[in-house]
Design a protein around this nucleic acid. Structure first.
Lengths: 334, 334
DNA sequence: GTGAAAGCGCTAACAC
DNA sequence: GTGTTAGCGCTTTCAC
């Protein structure tokens, strides 16, 4: 079976004590240069690596951080993960990625598992279904550092990173208005998500500015964030069947944008103009086309990670928390 | 700080020894039902969870399996990951996902890290850049169970899962031929990958069957799997500038397919017909359109995981290895 | 400058 | 049926 070299093996080989070896390895100042070199060279030679499991047990921390996102297949999240990893690795942390698939139960299980696994902190974007936050609050109260990004929990006292959802939504909606559209529908994520509220504000603001009345009938929520089969298509059908059929749609998330375009194509309504949040890197290939609001996902991941590590490594309990709001970029089609 | 309950706390509270508690918790037959109930109830009440770190240290295994893929943003891999997780979780294992981004160095670091992290085994699909396999062979020799999927290492004695790359490529190419194309180019991944060789065989077979000569000039390899900026576009440009400009392209992977379509659009060559490997779930939205060969990614992940766990849990060293080849599905456009 | 020993949380042989 | 003890690999007092 797989049996790595231990500090003991080195000690035996070099006729030293394990403590001396340990100290030499971590460059303890008490050790003579001679011994230090001896140990270091030998360790190098046999490719010794400290056992992080033992270290974790000893230090009650693991130098790993947990990530909870709805799914890695979503470009926004995979970019964010890349950002998280870039910072984490550079600071000596590893990451453990877990997916909630927008399910509340999965999120609960994932969080518990990460906590048991002794991650030093968690970076999370809430699942679409999550309405109860006890599982997070409990861990937070127990002292586990938690940072939110994208889909944040406003009520929790901790660091948060979002993009400027209001402005992003405003720009997209105003673009549709300037295109001459008057009946602009809004396809949204589940109602209780922070991003849903924010993006709806931007949508409404744009309507108001241009004297277009806001109509509740034009708004559809996807409770499962589009993870449920047919969820998005059903929402789209009900919009398309409205007596006053929309001439444009503002879509509030990546996954919904894809579902929206697919539904328009399927139901031969390509004349409806779509603008929405999406970080897709192949958006120029889409037909019907999509004007999109892009979030700085990579950077959001980086910042969230810096924030998390700052809490983890803080000498004293952190009392002051920050919410960073990054700008989105709007890329209209033509 | 975050301080979970330990078995010791329970022992103290219940005035028992830690071993009794430990045994009761795992349902040891020697413990009286009375004590067992006492312990179980109390553990339940205070929401006790065994510390997996301590367990790992003790048992020299972690009940976690490592995954190495080029990137999670790639649909094929994210689907495979979902398959892996489905089996892993059901059998009590956790997963640690790591991305090579098709870089050799990253792959080496990831593998080492996973091994140090005491994963019980690794499921890997090779990076496009990887040409040297010592990092894998070393761990394998040390007894770490390894299973390959998709981009496999033929020379290693272990379980492997692939899709029927030859047949998939054959079908796609033949489809192009039946569409009336005669000058069919081939955009491929890096040359040393198993899938590259296999898919090229299928491509050639189809040409041969229909009496079209194979031309080396029509083949382009992407050494970095398309992860390098402009890599795919450059390859495409050189194909488009050929004296005998191709009238169709068979593309050998998901990422390349996207790059290929983007390049065709950018260089106004939408008349060229494209067929290629892709597991994209929004392929019907693409323009130019893509006829695609789909791999059963989820199932491949599941099978790989079952194989891995069978090695991990084998009582005796496994000597007989299996290579499972799953069928692809071809979805032509129109 | 180096070694012996205790302890992180858990399990399992070995008492009793 | 339950307790004692040693040990997984490592760090870190405390001796010397």
């Amino acid at each position: 079976m797989f049996k790595p070299v231990t500090i003991k093996d080195i000690a035996k080989e070099l006729k030293l004590s394990t403590s001396t070896v340990s100290r030499a390895l971590r460059g303890g100042y008490e050790i003579s240069d001679e011994t230090k070199k001896l140990v270091l060279d030998y360790a190098e030679k046999i490719n010794f690596k400290r056992n992080p499991i033992a270290l974790s047990l000893k230090e009650r921390r693991s130098y790993s951080i947990g990530i909870v996102v709805c799914e890695v297949a979503n470009v926004f999240f995979s970019q964010a993960i890349d950002g998280i990893e870039s910072i984490a690795y550079s600071k000596g942390y590893n990451t453990i990625i877990s997916q909630s698939h927008d399910k509340y139960e999965r999120e609960v299980i994932n969080m518990e598992h990460l906590a048991n696994r002794s991650v030093d902190g968690i970076i999370i974007s809430l699942a679409a279904e999550t309405k109860n936050y006890e599982h997070i609050e409990k861990l937070h109260k127990q002292g586990l550092p938690i940072v939110f990004f994208d889909r944040i929990l406003e009520s929790m006292q901790t660091h948060k990173v979002t993009s400027n959802n209001v402005k992003g939504a405003f720009e997209a909606t105003e673009y549709l208005i300037k295109k001459g559209c008057k009946k602009i529908a809004h396809l949204a994520n589940s109602e209780q998500l922070s991003i849903t509220a924010q993006r709806q504000i931007g949508y409404k603001d744009a309507l108001t500015k241009h004297h277009i009345p806001f109509k509740k009938e034009y708004v559809r929520y996807c409770e499962h964030g589009g993870s449920m089969k047919d969820e998005v298509e059903q929402a789209m059908i009900s919009l398309l069947n409205l007596p006053e059929k929309p001439d444009a749609i503002f879509v509030a998330s990546d996954r919904l944008s894809m579902g929206c375009l697919a539904a328009l194509k399927k139901h031969h309504s390509e004349n409806i103009i779509v603008a929405g949040f999406s970080n897709s890197d192949v958006v120029e290939l889409f037909s019907p086309s999509l004007s999109c609001v892009r979030q700085p996902a990579f950077e959001m991941g980086q910042i969230a990670t810096e924030m998390l590590i700052s809490i983890i490594e803080a000498k004293y309990p952190v009392e002051e928390f920050e919410t960073r709001i990054l700008d989105t970029t709007f890329s209209p089609i033509a």
